[in-house]
Amino acid sequence: MKILVCISQVPDTSTKIVLKNNDTSVNGDGVTYIINPYDEWYALVRAIELKEKGIASDIHLITVGKANVEPVIRKALSLGGDEAIRIDADSNDAYETAGYIAAYAAQVGYDLILCGKESIDYNNGITGTMLAGMLDMDYIGFATDIQVEAGVAVVKREVEGGEETDQCNLPLVISCQKGIAEARIPNMRGIMAARTRPLKVVEPSKIAALTAILSYELPPAKAGIKMISPDDMDQLVDLLHTEARVI
C-alpha cells in the first residue's frame, strides 16, 4: 500500500504577523517555519505507524513550494517517509495547490492520501476534499482514527454532534485531526537517514489560480480589559448582560 502525505510549511504558531507592501503581503523576515501541526502530528505520524505495522509499503511526502520550503520537508522526512516531492511553485490558492498535487498523484497512483484537517496559515481545510474530487476518490474528513486491513479502511470521524465509524475501500483521501496519533520527535538516526532520502523537485503542471488575495488586515487591538473583584460576580454577570450582551 502506497501512502501520500501532504505537507504544508507554515509560520510557527508564535509568529507575530507583520504586513508589508501596503498590506498586500505578509512579511516573512525573521519568521520561523514549521511543518503544519495537523499534517505532522496526525497525518504523517499515522502514515509512519501504518508502515511500522507492515500495512503500508511506501510513504511519499509531497509539498508545494519554492526551494525555501526544503528544510521543513527534510524535517518531515526525518520523522519518517521514503521519499519527498516538492512541486516547484508558489501558491496560496487551494485549487492551484490541490491541482499540482493531484497531477503528480495521478501519475504515481496512491492507495491512501492523508492530509491535516487544515493548515494554520490560511485555515481553509479544503485541499484534501479538492484532491478527492480531482482524483475521483472517496473522501473522509475530520478523522480521529484510521485502521487499514486488506484494502479496506475503517475510519472514525467527527460528524455534526457526534462521532461516526465509516468503512471504505481504498483508494481514499482522509483529512486527519486530533486523536489519530501521538506527536513524535525526530531522533538522530532519523535526521541522518533523512539526508540520504530522495527529495524530488517536480515542475508544476499548468494550472491557473481561481482566487487572489488582494490585501491583509490586522485585527483591531482589544479595547482593554476590565478587572472585576473575585468577590463581586454579580457585577460580572451584569456586565455580560448589559455591556457585552452575551447572556
Partner: peptide, 23 residues
Amino acid sequence: HDISGRTVAPRVAVQLKAGIVAG
C-alpha cells in the same frame, strides 16, 4: 464552513472550476 460544508463545497468547486473562499 463546518464539517458538512467542508466535506462537500470544495468538491463542488472542483467540478465547476470555481474559486472558493473558506470561512
